[in-house]
């Protein structure tokens, strides 16, 4: 028999522990007797004991159950609707009633179009106006103060009417802010792509025009050196050019005679046989007859191979010759180059 229980019981009953122990024993015996006779026994403030086949069952009294459940008193079961039937709206998350004056101000400009929807501000604004109109005809001297008073009145009324909207508008604003980030980026990419393509295609002609001078000059620098030796050593080449010059006269007589200082020419063809060179020269004389340019055959021997070059025109500088080539682009072959003729040929 636990002493703590007996002591506490004795304290409550105001008797000695021995008397409390005997009293408790008697009480338990009475309870068992009642259970055997009636099958159940009720103890006030504690509960009901029921005798069953499984053993002794206990049903706590409602007062005992409430006292024991004091930590969770007042909690009731809550029934929650399924999520599908309860649509989620963002406007319900942000309570618009809080701080209406501060929250409403940033959205005034946005809600400007929606002013027509709430009828109440208009009604509020219209109500004072008839009063003002009524006042107008009657008192002639003091219409201004009456008119001024109704105007400020609707303004303080407006802010509290707006707040319910802000959350939804804030979401729309976010979307508007989000869109322009993508559109300018895409546009920039497209513009850059177009510029890149344009540069790729339209910048090619200029390099082609810029590149030729380098090989031309290289050739002009190379050619004079061997040709001076050639003309010095190989006299038959000079005779050939003389013969070519004698053949040329019919064209040259018709064309204006170039000044002797011009020693640059456009080479339109370079062949190894004289006949082919003459045919080429005849063809260019025909096509260039309207331009009045001299067409001659220049003979050059280098490395034991004699080349007959058909030269068109006479120019004082390679730049001039290139300009002429650009002008005669459709008549001359694209691979025509500028050559400095040896001074002996002039």
């Amino acid at each position: 028999m636990p002493e703590a229980l007996i002591n506490r019981l004795a304290e409550r009953l105001g008797c000695s522990p021995e008397a409390a122990a005997t009293a408790l024993r008697q009480f338990v015996e009475q309870l068992h007797q009642q259970l055997e006779q009636e099958g159940q026994a009720n103890v006030a403030g504690l509960g009901r004991f029921i005798r069953t086949e499984q053993g002794l069952q206990f049903e706590p009294d409602t007062s005992l159950a409430q006292a024991v459940n004091h930590r969770f008193a007042g909690l009731e079961p809550v029934t929650v609707e399924p999520p599908a039937t309860q649509p989620y709206r963002k406007t319900e998350v942000v309570p618009p009633e809080e701080e209406p004056a501060e929250k409403a101000s940033p959205f005034y400009e946005v809600t400007g179009e929606q002013e027509a929807e709430p009828v109440s501000p208009e009604a509020v604004a219209q109500e004072p106006e008839p009063a003002a109109e009524e006042h107008h005809p009657e008192p002639a001297p003091e219409p201004e103060p009456v008119v001024d008073t109704p105007q400020p009145a609707p303004q303080p009324d407006e802010p509290p009417l707006r707040p319910p909207r802000p959350p939804r508008i804030r979401v729309e604003e976010d979307r508007r802010r989000g869109l322009p980030v993508w559109i300018p980026a895409a546009l920039l990419i497209v513009v850059f792509g177009v510029v890149a393509v344009w540069l790729l295609f339209f910048s090619q002609p200029s390099p082609r025009e810029a590149v030729p001078p380098a090989p031309v000059r290289a050739e002009t620098e190379q050619s004079p050196a061997p040709e001076t030796t050639v003309t010095a050593t190989a006299t038959p080449a000079v005779t050939d050019t003389v013969s070519a010059a004698t053949e040329a006269p019919p064209a040259e007589t018709s064309a204006p005679v170039p000044p002797p200082t011009d020693n640059y020419a456009l080479i339109v063809g370079s062949v190894t046989s004289q006949r082919a060179a003459e045919q080429l020269a005849a063809r260019f004389r025909r096509t260039l007859s309207e331009h009045g340019l001299p067409v001659t055959i220049v003979t050059v021997t280098s490395n034991g191979i004699t080349r007959y070059r058909v030269a068109v025109g006479r120019y004082s500088s390679p730049e001039e010759a290139l300009a002429a080539k650009r002008q005669l682009g459709e008549v001359l072959p694209p691979d025509a180059w500028v050559l400095r003729l040896p001074s002996t040929m002039q």
Partner: peptide, 27 residues
Amino acid sequence: PEQVAQALAELVQDALMRGESVEIPGL
């Protein structure tokens, strides 16, 4: 016995409210 039953009920209730268990001999 009525006094004992009432005292016992109060005692059990106090103990259970503190979260303690109460063993009653014979019951």
